[in-house]
Simulated scan of single mutants.
Amino acid sequence: MKIDLNSDMGEGFGRWTMADDDALMGLISSANIACGYHAGDYAIMDHTVRLAKEKGVGIGAHPGLPDLIGFGRRTMVVSDTDMEAMLACQIGALQGVAARHGHRVTHVSYHAAFGTMANENDDRALRLVRVIAALDKDLTVFCMPGQPTERAAEKVGLKTHTLFLADRAYTAAGTLVPRGQPGAVIHDLAGVRARVRQFLEDGLVTTIDGVRMPVKARSILVHSDTPGSLEIAKAIRGEMDACGAVLTPAHRLND
């Protein structure tokens, strides 16, 4: 079975780094690259794209709200028109950097509050995926199963890949446990391994309430800003190898 392992990357700023992106790049198959709004800058974007090209890793835009202090995790009062412009600006910036290095942006994965706001209603979700389609109809949209973004992307003819979040707890409703609540972020490596094994072998995840719930996904996400993200990624790769999963960039999953 082909499985994509992706990570949010390039989320430093200037001299500040968030994670060991260089080491993570050797473990993953797709990188979701911050585009300068919630994190990242021109130099970090350039380095991350170049490294991904060298490692054969697929790249995608990871657009967020313009909130460096809050790391894009705080909702903002902005219009749908502003969100459309933000999205186009960030994807376009990464496309330019990628072209310089002979690489290509193949997917879009919303960051934190931008994704939450995108999924607040069907109309906004549709407006945003139309922006993506206008930039490149071959772009794949990363999303959570059953969200407005998934339905909207399919409506405009964009491919989607739904995600399994190995380091985040799920509710019985299929949503993520909000950050800040106990158990929302999973740091225990044995727990991560067990979750990945259950997902790969049975297509299930055990929710924070103890419910075994089906998960429709072929891409596993690990957040690089989670403390110990490098060790988490290594644990996931170990389980993938043990289960016979073939590491595959998201844009090649259907080849």
Rank of each mutant, 00 (worst) to 15 (best):
4 D>R: 13
6 N>I: 08
7 S>P: 05
8 D>T: 05
8 D>F: 01
9 M>Y: 03
11 E>Y: 03
12 G>M: 06
15 R>Q: 12
18 M>A: 15
18 M>V: 04
22 D>F: 10
23 A>F: 00
25 M>V: 10
25 M>W: 03
26 G>C: 07
27 L>Y: 08
28 I>R: 09
28 I>M: 14
33 I>M: 05
35 C>L: 04
40 G>S: 08
40 G>R: 07
41 D>H: 11
42 Y>D: 12
44 I>Y: 01
45 M>I: 09
46 D>T: 14
48 T>V: 14
50 R>Q: 13
50 R>L: 11
52 A>D: 01
55 K>T: 01
64 G>F: 02
65 L>D: 05
65 L>N: 07
66 P>D: 05
66 P>V: 04
67 D>L: 10
68 L>E: 00
68 L>Q: 00
70 G>L: 08
70 G>I: 13
72 G>D: 09
77 V>M: 11
79 S>M: 10
91 I>S: 05
91 I>G: 07
94 L>H: 09
97 V>W: 01
98 A>L: 08
100 R>V: 15
100 R>K: 14
107 H>C: 13
111 H>D: 09
115 G>E: 12
118 A>R: 12
121 N>F: 01
121 N>L: 01
121 N>A: 02
125 A>Q: 06
126 L>T: 15
126 L>N: 10
129 V>H: 10
132 I>W: 00
133 A>K: 15
135 L>Q: 14
140 T>C: 12
141 V>E: 05
150 E>L: 10
151 R>M: 01
152 A>V: 06
155 K>G: 00
159 K>L: 13
160 T>H: 04
160 T>V: 15
164 F>T: 09
169 A>L: 11
174 G>A: 06
175 T>I: 02
175 T>S: 14
177 V>R: 04
178 P>Q: 09
184 A>C: 06
186 I>M: 05
186 I>F: 01
188 D>Q: 04
191 G>V: 13
192 V>N: 02
194 A>D: 13
194 A>K: 14
194 A>S: 12
198 Q>M: 15
198 Q>D: 15
200 L>W: 02
201 E>Q: 14
202 D>C: 10
207 T>L: 03
213 M>K: 15
213 M>A: 09
214 P>G: 07
216 K>G: 00
218 R>F: 02
219 S>Y: 01
223 H>Q: 09
228 G>K: 10
231 E>Y: 05
233 A>N: 00
234 K>G: 05
236 I>W: 02
239 E>I: 13
239 E>T: 12
241 D>C: 00
242 A>L: 10
252 R>G: 00
255 D>N: 11
